[in-house]
Design a protein around this nucleic acid. Sequence first.
DNA 1: GAGAAAAATGAACGACGTTCAAAAAACCGG
DNA 2: CCGGTTTTTTGAACGTCGTTCATTTTTCTC
Lengths: 217, 217
Amino acid sequence: MNDVQKTGSDSAERPGAKTSARRADLRARLVAAGRAAVAEGGLQNLKARDLAAAAGCAVGAIYNVFDDLDDLILRIGADTLARLEQGLAAPPGPAPEPAEELLRLACGYFSFARADKALWRALFEHRLAGGRPAPAWYLEDQSRLFALVEAPLARLLPDEPASSRALLARTLFSAVHGVVSLGLEEKLAPMPEAILEAELERLVRAFAAGLTLLPPG
Amino acid sequence: MNDVQKTGSDSAERPGAKTSARRADLRARLVAAGRAAVAEGGLQNLKARDLAAAAGCAVGAIYNVFDDLDDLILRIGADTLARLEQGLAAPPGPAPEPAEELLRLACGYFSFARADKALWRALFEHRLAGGRPAPAWYLEDQSRLFALVEAPLARLLPDEPASSRALLARTLFSAVHGVVSLGLEEKLAPMPEAILEAELERLVRAFAAGLTLLPPG
DNA sequence: GAGAAAAATGAACGACGTTCAAAAAACCGG
DNA sequence: CCGGTTTTTTGAACGTCGTTCATTTTTCTC
């Protein structure tokens, strides 16, 4: 409903430029305040009145630039996804062995989750009201994560069809996510992080080794 | 409001028997009503006033038999865990190949999650207020699930130390959970269930095959 | 600069989990 | 059985939440 892309430089000529700039600025301040609130106390700590106070606006102003808090939470999630993608970016240099690269991604994912626990949690904890599906722009942000896994998989399994590899990338991502997710879960018996990382390595190495034995699917 | 039938025979012997029986009955009715509410509309659909209406008691009565709604949710979760454990019980007959048994458990887990999606989700969606740790009785209910995985793992890796196997059981459970969890996640691009099950099989088979190649850890 | 249009405001609304003074029920010695 | 005491149950009330909308303030147009 509210796509404001106008971040033009001149304010006097274009009608509504000042307003759009203020709206964009308010959006940014609200996302920043929301991210800080979630980072501090989880999704439960995201309160409309606190947000308004932190961003220096009225509570009603939130609803001028976002449909509702769910909308704001999705933007925070997109931010988190972008930072995660950035944190998993491949370092320069020659491409390592596929299994080593997969392991690097898995450990990077764990590292990110550990460092930004509350924000990372919010990615999966949050449910859209009424079971609505996530907007397309959010799904695209996610698919970039799976793509990071797909590249080393292609080198590991050159005979695998591309469609099958895409599924496999999501599966491997999901498996690593599961280990990290339940590993950091406070409702389960706690796990030392060093052990968790060793288990992650065992999962990725065993899975990668086993994959090369299975027939292509 | 509530008619209490006086049996007359047991009221004289046990002091407070009638009271504790009513409390136990109320607990059961509240858990049943809560489970129905969660099954219908997720954790968000669990409202104190609705619960009281469904169980035929005052809102305050909930707090006579539960600390708070978190407490009630944990009981619902324990119920769900018990039904899951029951659904994963090994069928009679000779023990199959370890990998096949692991696959059966994974598919059983997926089947349960699919059939009781909202209740299964509630197991992981729910966070205790203030980041409190889960009570011991709840952790014990969970550990029984990991134990189901440990048995076939012991046959698959007879040279693995028991402590390492316990970790591995939790890791494999977590990996399968991750695939099921993100597979059924509505905030991700949807996955057909048949494909999801095939991916689950690929994960378990590759992991089991790869494990036998890795050195014991 | 004045009048029209658009945006920002914050008090008000309904719903939520939880509490607690009061009412009801259970208990117990005579 | 009864009257006084204790325990349990009750539901109106409280504080907080996300969200709305009549009012005020700002921006735009001529």
